[in-house]
Amino acid sequence: MKTNDVILQTVTKFTLFVIILFSIHLFFAGHYYPGGGFIGGLMTSGAIVLLLLAFDIKTVKMILPFDYIKVVAVGLLIAIGTGAGALFFNMPFLTHAYTYVYLPLLGKTSLHTAVLFDTGVFLVVIGVTMTIIQTIGESE
C-alpha cells in the first residue's frame, strides 16, 4: 500500500536543518562543554537518516551526491595530517598547539589544532554511519 508521507516530509524539510545546526553547535562545544566530533557527526548522520526515512534512497543520493567511503578516507587523512604536522616542529606525534587570535566579528578566539583532529573524527563518523545504513538499505 502506498501511503502519503506529506506531513512527515514537510516537517523533515524544516527539522533537518535545525538538527544539523545543533550538531554543529555540539561539534564546536566540544572543548569546554559536553560534545565533540563523535556526537556531532553521529547527530548529523541522524539528520540524514531522517531524510532517508522521509524520502527514498534515490532522492537522498540526488540531494547529497557524496561517496561516503571517500568521506571516511578524507576524515582519516585530516586526523593523520594533524598528528603528523607536529613532527615538522620537532614535537612528538599528535602534539597539539593553540593560539589566541583576534578575528573580526568574533573577537578573541582560541584556535586549537585539536579542532582539525575533531573534524576528521566528525567526517569519519558520518561516513561510517551512512555507509552502514545505505549498505543495509540497498540490499534486497
Partner: peptide, 30 residues
C-alpha cells in the same frame, strides 16, 4: 536558533549562525 543554542544575543552570534545556516543550505541546495 543558533543564538538560542549559544544563549548569546549579540549581532556577532547572529552572523555566525547565519554563516552556518548558509553552509547547511548550500550543502542541501539540491
Amino acid at each position: 536558533v543558533w543564538m538560542f543554542l549559544k544563549t548569546s544575543y549579540s549581532p556577532a552570534s547572529f552572523f555566525v549562525g547565519y554563516f552556518f545556516g548558509l553552509l547547511i543550505i548550500y550543502i542541501f541546495r539540491r
